[in-house]
Design a binder for these strands. Structure first.
Lengths: 194, 194, 194, 194
DNA sequence: TATGAATGAGACTTCATTCAT
DNA sequence: AATGAATGAAGTCTCATTCAT
């Protein structure tokens, strides 16, 4: 893909995200998207093979951004517990920022009966966090009797789902910081080596 | 609603669940549903105001079944850790049994931009498990420094999401029993009073 | 099919024939047809599964009319040579009357890569004429050394194609009656028992 | 047209014939053709003014090939009945070889509502065969009471349509040789001077 | 209460053609 | 002469919903 065509791809993707976030996937027509992107109807199909192919593209885009942010705020020098705290906070932040996109990814991936794709898209993030956990085990910050793969995914899902319940499900049983603190404590009690 | 009309309501709902589970919400037409239910096109609208009104009805139906099963397997005499084990197992079982319905609830609720409804539908289940936790605190089986509401939801979501990743996301990093065991241990380490 | 729905089927078919005859198959949209038939867009699809399904229906309709006319003008008392003369004349008449429909059948069946259907549709007409020939053999009006099936089809095609060249191909190397006479003589010389 | 541009014209035409033969005229896009020809989208329009202009070009190409073959197999020394036999056989051969192209010519010419063009394209072939017939009359091989023009066309159409019914319509009431023999006999009985 | 034919808006997608490079 | 990205009109078909019976 040339630089110019990549630009157009991004332009379409951005327009799609914006429109679909507002109106929902099913209520958005290609016509809406191209109008918003300022291109012709047919041009859309030069960059995406179909309407439904937008969803994985959007999901991918979302995780890329999220993951970038994680890597940005977390330093290699941070202890595991600092990392955890930062990851929780960042998860809440990105969930708030991108809640509409998250919703459409849920619906989209569900629509396409392709929940498996989540796993593929999440792979780099899982891997990154797995390494943090392995390091923490090595540094004896956390116990070594866990299944690292499973625990990684449990933690990430715990953070994400709680944040989603808070921002998307509008579940407000406590303040945001208390939510974050409660997750942190829950995990710390479970994994701490001391 | 008379008994007879309730029967027809159920007949339509069952047909809807079956067809939508197979084909997905968007690919299912009212025509498909009424054919499967053996009624006329117009009759559908005597029982449901619209196609989209099926989704909350189905979600409600799903939670009702799940919750019934929970209450059935769990005895009041069970210790909290027995309860937890049973609840985890039952969650995995129902997730496997109803994975198609779960998917359609995800997509459906997302479609309707009404994730909040989940919370309402889940209310009775949350409440029931909250009581179990409060009892466990009282019996000094688990620590008393937690936020009960938040912890309840975290646990339930932890179980459900892991089960969904396993059965729907086809994530198979370990055997099913190991998944269940890992969740159990994770929670136990975090909450156990000893 | 009830009487009323049969009426609507015919109404659509007539509208389709008329519009497609004028504009050609490819240049005709369903929208044109339903407008001409005075029905709603969707109604079309209650009676025909697709646009292309019109073609066999039209072809069938055409042959039905043609065949009816043949049976009407030809009497059981007619000698074979009278029958032949009448069939040639009728072929020319119907070709002139329905030349637009004939064109669309050609294009349509060709488009659908389903030339074989012609044979099926023509079956009753072929059969009827075959019997005439068999009778003529029995009555020793024509020779008995021919392959009846093949000869039947050759004769019918000879008549039809010549008529089509005359009316559709606008080939006017002679007067219409001369064309008819030439076909008649050609066949008579070939088959006459004397 | 320079030699080089003629080559490219042919390349496009060949590609068009091949692709349209496979997929049918309507299902073939210019995009398919240029891909197959290995040229750019816009280049097509340097050699053909429009998609539909391909059809007469293809038809012309088809008849050129067919006619070349006829002239090749038929010798000036052949008696009329030898010529007839050879022409019938060749007609069957080319019909088999080019059945897809024939179909597309039918549909194409019909699409364009320009059946008359057939006559123009066929002109040289008609003329050639007419001369054969005139010669046969002169040599008293066949009777002289026929209309040469009309009879020529009847014979050619008889051969072609029978071959088309056999190879395209998949009408198999007898073996191929029997079909050819039956046509031959039919014509011979009709025209033979003895 | 039940029916099911009719509606008609609107969606996705294709593709012949153009034109700036 | 050649390219190929962009255009945007147009087409087929679906389907939730209505309403006369």
């Amino acid at each position: 893909m040339t630089k110019k065509s990549e630009e157009k791809y991004d332009k379409i993707l951005q327009a799609a995200i914006q429109v679909i976030s507002e109106k929902g996937y099913e209520n958005t027509s290609i016509s809406d998207i191209v109008k918003s992107a300022g291109i012709a109807q047919g041009t859309f199909y030069l960059y995406f093979p179909s309407k439904s192919s937008l969803i994985p593209a959007i999901a991918d885009h979302l995780l890329t951004i999220t993951f970038e942010k994680m890597k940005l705020v977390v330093s290699d020098q941070d202890s595991f517990w600092i990392v955890l705290e930062k990851v929780i906070r960042t998860t809440f932040e990105t969930t708030e920022d991108f809640k509409d996109i998250i919703i459409l990814c849920y619906s989209g991936l569900a629509i396409e009966h392709s929940m498996e794709k989540w796993e593929i898209i999440y792979q780099p993030f899982y891997q990154w966090f797995e390494e943090k956990i392995n390091l923490a085990i090595k540094h004896q910050e956390i116990i070594d009797t866990i299944d690292v793969k499973l625990t990684t995914k449990m933690i990430i899902n715990l953070m994400e789902n709680t944040a989603e319940r808070y921002f998307i499900g509008k579940e407000h049983d406590a303040l945001e910081e208390e939510y974050q603190k409660e997750i942190y404590n829950f995990i710390k009690r479970s994994l701490s080596a001391f």
